[in-house]
Every structure is written in structure tokens, then in C-alpha cells.
């Protein structure tokens, strides 16, 4: 047998499946591109990805987060764009990726795939890594892309992350098109006056994160005009919040209780962690009291 070749499909079926179970996500992706049969074999391996995020900045990247094993695999899709015109999302001319893993040295690869449009890549990744949802993130210089071509290729994300793209009109278009969204994360710099508009704040969200620079106001200033009652840390941390889907969590740090117009109590906990400030909002419906 040639030492550069190994007949994988001639192994007993449990053995070839075992090889697939041991392969890293990046190796599985490469395997899935060989043929329909190879793709089916990868799908049946049932590796579940935690998150697929399309990251739009200077270039388009797809970040695959597997959580437990190979932490993040970051694919960059290189496209040739006309000078002067807005960049259209198009068939990538080549792809590079860097695999970071707790177990392997970080590696860089590059290859061409002339068959796939960008949307085909996304569908392929969703299929082989058994994930229906994807996230989309806009970052610096994303405004250079033609918004219509973004809409065409990245439909129905379930999570949106927005940093300032460099153009407020473009930022606005992002919210207009993609909202409502289950998970929303935004930077206050996205808005000219750094204030999050009410129509964004007033909606049903599963998770909402606002990123703001520290000098935009301290805790006292934020709560200055809001009538509230401070609950000491020892007392606050005894309160348990029952989540709708995933168990429960205790309140942390000092609490600030306030009441909605309909009498429902809410608590805000502000925590300083690793030089960042986190705000936790708890709304105490009857079914949320643990």
C-alpha cells in the first residue's frame, strides 16, 4: 500500500466512524467537501456546534465556536472587489482559516472552492455541524459592503451584534432590516447621540447586551432619576431568580429594586468584573421567584 494513501472506506464501519469521531471540526469540514457521501458521513457524526457567527468588517469571516473542544475556528472568505464601488458579497476566491484548539497548535490553511457562493457556505456549515441558527455581527468598516447583497446571503439570523460600522446610516439599516431579534447586542457608539432608541429597547428579547465605554456614566449617575431602593448585598444574594428555560440563578452583589407602572418588581444588579461593568436585570413575575 502506498504510504501516502489510506483506504478509509475499506475499514470496518465502526472503525471509519471512530476515525471521524476523533477528527477535529476543521478536518471534518474538509472531508465534507469531498463528495455527497462524505458529507453525509460527517453529518451523521452529529457534532453539534455552539455558534456560527458571520462577522462583517473589512472582510467577511465565519467564526465557528465549538465550545468544549476546538474552541474557535475562524474562516476568512477572500473576495475580489471592484475599486470604488460598494463591496458585494460574492463567491469567495479563496478561504483561509486558523484553528485554535486546546489540544493542537494553532494552524493556518488556505484552499480554493470554486463551487460555493457565500450562502452555500453558510448552509453547508449549518448542515454538517447540525445547527439551524446563525448569528451575524457588524463591525468597523462593514459599511463598505453593499447592504442588499448582505441581506441576500445572510438571511434570518437569530442573534445580532452591532458595533459602529463607520457609517450611522448603515447602522440604522442594520437595525431596520434585522430587528426583531431574539438575541441583541449593541455598542452605544452605533448611535450618533450614543442613546439607544426606545423602539429598540421596547421589544421582547431573550438576551440583550449594551456595550458602553466606562466614561459614559457611573452607577450613581445612571440611577440618579430613577426611584429605587437599595437592597444590601447579603440580603440581595439570598434571592433566587427562576429562569424560563434554564434553571435558576442567584442575584449578585448589591441590588436596586424598582417597580414598573403595573406594580411588577424589578431588580438591577451592577457588577464590576475584569474592568468591565455588567448590568443584570431581573423582573420578578410570580413564576420567576425562586
Amino acid at each position: 500500500m502506498n504510504n501516502q494513501r489510506f483506504p478509509l472506506t475499506r475499514l470496518p464501519s465502526p472503525c471509519s466512524q471512530n476515525v471521524l469521531r476523533i477528527m477535529t471540526p476543521a478536518e471534518l469540514l474538509k472531508l465534507s467537501l469531498i463528495s455527497k457521501k462524505a458529507k453525509d458521513a460527517v453529518v451523521s457524526r452529529n457534532l453539534k456546534i455552539r455558534e456560527i457567527e458571520v462577522f462583517i468588517g473589512n472582510e467577511i469571516e465565519v467564526i465557528l465556536n465549538f465550545g468544549h473542544f476546538s474552541s474557535i475556528t475562524d474562516f476568512k472568505f477572500h473576495m475580489t472587489h471592484e475599486r470604488g464601488a460598494p463591496k458585494r458579497v460574492q463567491k469567495p476566491s479563496y478561504i483561509t482559516f486558523c484553528e485554535d484548539s486546546r489540544y493542537l497548535v494553532s494552524k493556518k490553511f488556505a484552499w480554493r472552492n470554486e463551487k460555493f457562493e457565500m450562502k452555500d457556505w453558510i448552509n453547508h456549515l449549518k448542515t454538517i455541524f447540525n445547527k439551524k441558527e446563525m448569528s451575524i455581527a457588524f463591525s468597523q468598516n462593514a459599511y463598505q459592503f453593499d447592504f442588499n447583497s448582505i441581506r441576500e446571503h445572510f438571511k434570518n439570523p437569530t442573534c445580532l451584534r452591532v458595533h459602529h460600522t463607520g457609517n450611522f446610516e448603515f447602522n440604522k439599516k442594520v437595525f431596520e432590516y434585522f430587528l426583531p431579534m431574539r438575541h441583541l447586542s449593541l455598542d452605544t457608539e452605533v448611535f450618533e447621540n450614543r442613546r439607544v432608541p426606545n423602539h429598540i429597547l421596547i421589544q421582547n428579547l431573550d438576551r440583550f447586551t449594551i456595550m458602553a465605554t466606562r466614561n459614559e456614566g457611573n452607577e450613581d449617575e445612571i440611577m440618579r432619576r430613577i426611584q429605587h431602593q437599595v437592597v444590601p448585598r447579603e440580603q440581595n444574594e439570598r434571592r433566587i431568580f427562576r429562569r424560563a428555560c434554564n434553571g435558576w440563578e442567584p442575584c449578585r452583589g448589591e441590588g436596586m429594586d424598582l417597580y414598573r407602572f403595573d406594580g411588577i418588581k424589578g431588580t438591577i444588579c451592577i457588577l464590576n468584573l475584569d474592568q468591565e461593568v455588567y448590568f443584570f436585570f431581573f423582573v420578578w413575575y410570580d413564576h420567576c421567584i425562586g
Binding site: R5, F6, L8, V19, M23, S35, K36, K107
Partner: peptide, 25 residues
Amino acid sequence: CKKVANMAQGKTPAQLRRVYLLPSD
């Protein structure tokens, strides 16, 4: 099996097809 899986490291899909003798569509 890990040794076989390691053969995929650093290969493009086309190279991988030749290494594992996998038929095309």
C-alpha cells in the same frame, strides 16, 4: 484511528480525497 485522523492535518479537501482514496460524486 487517531493516527489515521491525523493524516488529514494540513491537507486541502482535494489532497484529502487522494489520501483517503475517497470517490468523487
